[in-house]
């Protein structure tokens, strides 16, 4: 289990992280959410010793994460980068060996992933000769070539087409099924909802929401309501109602203790109901509640 405990970091006068704590368990996929500049990348860099926190610790199975422990970690930074003029397969073998694989094992693993990503015929091409999407696949392969126990991916879905998104999701699920602890950040909330079991939301350097996604949704003190009366969205006349608009379609957020029957009767009283939904908030609702309020 990867455990980030009470990490704080200042850059000059700017507080980048304040008492950040979370854990990523083996076989689980954790989505790491937050607005730009919230502290996601800085947090991930502390896991790899690229940023030294002012206080707090990062441990793996109880041991402080140092250079040797990190060899079992895979990392895909937000700023993508490999050697442009190095051959694709050589590159993967190099990163595999850097993580401690033998030359033979690194070669086998490199071939396996090149095959899985449909790049077997580009093994001996220089990286710079590949398309942007294929370079992205090689970057992912470089992070997973040594079969990591912990996988940290910073915005892995950005810039991928729908097919790329699906194949990356599958790779992540596969690694989780094999017992890898996965932490990834993303802005695409529907994707995170789809792939992750756990989420952590960070805002201005502080963790604001954290835990099992289903659990968070169930326990949220508000509900997502969408009631249409006479073909129009109808706003429930209850306290603290909020209108949320997502991809051109609006719905309302009401407190979880609002009496649903009563709300339904009020709606019926004002016309004929053409649509009705009442459910726990989506991840997007939770994110907005946590970050924008």
């Amino acid at each position: 289990m990867l455990e980030v405990a009470n990490i704080s970091k200042r850059f000059g006068d700017v507080v980048a992280l304040r008492d950040v704590s979370f854990e990523v368990r083996p076989g689980r996929i954790m989505g790491f959410l937050g607005r730009n500049g919230a502290g996601k990348t800085t947090t991930m860099r502390t896991v790899f010793g690229l940023v030294a926190p002012d206080s707090g610790s990062v441990t793996y199975d109880g041991a402080v994460v140092d250079h040797d422990v990190r060899l079992a970690f895979g990392y895909m930074p937000e700023e993508r980068g490999l050697y442009p003029r190095m051959r694709v397969r050589d590159q993967l073998v190099y990163f595999g060996r850097l993580a401690g694989l033998s030359k033979g094992d690194a070669g086998t693993s490199a071939d396996r992933w090149l095959d899985a990503f449909g790049l077997a015929d580009r093994s001996h091409s220089k990286l710079e000769d590949l398309s942007h999407g294929n370079q992205q696949r090689v970057q992912l392969a470089a992070a997973i070539v040594a079969d990591p126990e912990v996988l940290v991916l910073d915005e892995p879905f950005s810039g991928l087409d729908p097919i790329g998104v699906e194949s990356l999701s599958e790779v992540l699920r596969g690694f989780a099924a094999g017992g890898t602890a996965i932490l990834f950040s993303s802005h695409q909330l529907d994707l995170v909802e789809d792939v992750c079991e756990d989420v952590t939301i960070i805002d201005q350097g502080e963790i604001v929401v954290q835990g099992d996604l289903e659990h968070i949704r169930e326990r949220a003190p508000y509900r997502r309501v969408e009631i249409w009366v006479d073909g129009r969205l109808w706003e429930p006349p209850v306290a603290d109602v909020r209108t949320v608009e997502a991809s051109g379609r609006a719905h309302h957020i009401v407190a979880a203790d609002v009496d649903v029957d009563e709300m339904l009767s009020m709606a019926q009283a004002s016309g004929s109901i053409t649509r009705f939904s009442y459910e726990p908030p989506s991840l997007s609702d939770i994110f907005q509640e946590a970050v924008l309020r």
Partner: peptide, 13 residues
């Protein structure tokens, strides 16, 4: 410049 340094430094001193 091509940012590969972050990947390497996550593995090597």
């Amino acid at each position: 410049q091509n940012r590969v340094v972050e990947v390497i430094l996550s593995k090597a001193r």
